[in-house]
Design a protein around this nucleic acid. Sequence first.
DNA 1: CTGCGGTACCGGGTTGACCCTGTACCCCCG
DNA 2: CGGGGGTACAGGGTCAACCCGGTACCGCAG
Lengths: 225, 225
Amino acid sequence: MSPIPTAEARALRVAVADDAVLFREGLTRLLTEAGFAVTAAVGDAGALLASVAADPPDVAVVDIRMPPTHTTEGLEAARALRERHPGTGVLVLSAHVETGYALQLVDGGTTGAGYLLKERVADLAELRDAVRRVAAGGVVVDPGVVATLVGRRRVHSPLDALSEREREVLAVMAEGRSNQAIGEQLFLSQKTVEAYVRSVFTKLGLHQAADDNRRVLAVLAFLRH
Amino acid sequence: MSPIPTAEARALRVAVADDAVLFREGLTRLLTEAGFAVTAAVGDAGALLASVAADPPDVAVVDIRMPPTHTTEGLEAARALRERHPGTGVLVLSAHVETGYALQLVDGGTTGAGYLLKERVADLAELRDAVRRVAAGGVVVDPGVVATLVGRRRVHSPLDALSEREREVLAVMAEGRSNQAIGEQLFLSQKTVEAYVRSVFTKLGLHQAADDNRRVLAVLAFLRH
DNA sequence: CTGCGGTACCGGGTTGACCCTGTACCCCCG
DNA sequence: CGGGGGTACAGGGTCAACCCGGTACCGCAG
């Protein structure tokens, strides 16, 4: 294409990791066009770690969801990267809001990291700036993520009111297990399980009503997160 | 049913619609690189329809999820496009498997349409071929989608074994209602509701076990579709 | 230091969710 | 025409899932 030398004396080196070929290749073109040198474009976390070890870039742009489990390999890889190669910045791309990592970013006094939502990147300049700032040791977090984080503080889900143990009981309950099985799994007596179940109901605002099966309602609330 | 031109006398004209800037711009670069002329790159269904009306391309590549509701605007736009501009092929891109549209594609004796999964496109040649075949009036469906469609025919969900009434009872049960409320809502006696609930359990293969709460398990099975 | 919330347990009670058996009517298929 | 499946109901039983009240220990914030 047209590798335009910008203000940089040397182009920033970027590695791209995303299992979707279309997105990965498209992103590679966009980064190249924006003046970065794409040193690697890989499809899974293992290949990313290998390529960074072999030829450390300034920034790794990583999708969260990757093979084999398609859940949070990208996050694991990002963590590993930050430990083994502190000199390489990590810019995580996510399809949806995953507050967990974003929180870790803010909490840990981190440098050289970022978290953007794929769909929220408004223009190419935003991407270019994010990569540059991460390369320079800055922290970039999508404003949409920040908003939901702040918002969630106020509009707290009723599940937040549950204690650790109550949440554990509810989690097993949501797998369709009986009180007896919950007790066996969490090493609790029947009576204690019953007490926790009742506590969960009251904290979720589920009062005794002839029309409701509160156990199912609690499970539904749990599944809604 | 037309012959596919391998060496194009004129470049095929393609319009791209996707609300995510990164993906849209990346895709635009890839299509251009593959020898297509991208006539428009827009971010919502309305803009797509307008641009196709103003300057009809050979193929429109459309993402399903777009503003404002971020659900299936892309599908609506695809339908509208096929009615108003039969000469323009429509290649739908989806993030996840949405069997509905894929089925319509196969059923309707359609020509010049396609359905690909963003993440399943293995290489750029696959995309290029898909666009060409849709432009030539062919039908392209992602093999993964075909597999799940065919698979779903054979590996029928246990829910298929339920009768109409049993499914209705289960549906109300899945809203967290008690047997009493189910009876009131469906105009059934308590005893009849109980009979249906038991019938649902047996048909779903949920036998009495001290470790399970079958009501919750049945609801979970129902929610999994 | 007092009190509150979380954790953990018990005895004793009620009831809704389940079990089985049996009846009845309908429709459709072989 | 008999039988299987769906729909609908009742009697009569068991038990897991709930209720309440009470005890106990811990840590921590006021």
